[in-house]
Amino acid sequence: MSQFNIDKGIKSSENVKGQSWRSINILKWPSWERWAAVLAGLLVWTACARLGLVASPYIFGLKFMNLLIIGDPVYNLTLLQIMGTSLETLLIGAGLAFALAVSSGILLGYFRSLNRFADVFISICRPIPPLAWIPVGYVLFAQLPQPTFWVQIMVVFMGAFFPCFNATVHTVQSTDPIIIEAAQTLGARRQRQILAQVILPSAVPGIISGVRSGLGVGWMCIIGAEFVGARMGIGAYIWSLYQLGGRMSEIMIAILSVGLIGYLMNEIVILLGRRIARWYSW
């Protein structure tokens, strides 16, 4: 009887840890610090508006809603339509970048000698600011029907590629060797089995965070790329606002929307990551 009790006791103490992990809160009520920050921000803003430095939050808000729902009269486009163009470019460019970054990252992470071979080229290309490729792109794509579009794709590609590529190479290289040995002792003798059943699944969280930072850099690049040569994306919109006499409120609205979209994309990837790799301690 007493032995039974001891067994029970230890079992249940082992359980506790398991249960608490189960319920991951996805949408949390913001902390009071966050509420305080919003309030303080509004207060400072109102004060500055009173001094005549900036437009008041109320007017700013009205203009924002106006842009969102009715749109900019100059272009007859709503803020979301303008954003949509940029997001489209981003998703195509970054999508291509991720496809290549993940596949080549796995290859170079796995084959060390290939990595040493390619290292020179990568190390030189990595520090080049993606925007520096704009003139190269215009020359390259001059014959195509929509050169501006392809240039922007190229710039986003360059921005999104390296963060994702680096993360993939690194995560593949840092696969826990003990886990590989564990697979070997369980009968995974072929390299193909090790790659498919150990290295790739263990690389998933690393690749997801690579995608996250790649998307972030890509988003920064698209704004810059749109300053030069315009399809009517958010970057082009900001630049045209400046050229049309610097409508400060609209410029700020557009810039803050860029920040907001970037933030949302980041959150979405984190959420997706949690879904895909539930096993990982994010």
Partner: peptide, 26 residues
């Protein structure tokens, strides 16, 4: 030969059952 590593060396992306099934699948 079955090898039990220090701290277990489980595959973190597999559930307990999938971990146990790993060798059988191979």
């Amino acid at each position: 030969i079955g090898y039990v590593f220090q701290e277990g060396a489980l595959f973190p992306w597999l559930t307990a059952a999938q971990n146990v099934a790993f060798g059988l699948k191979l």
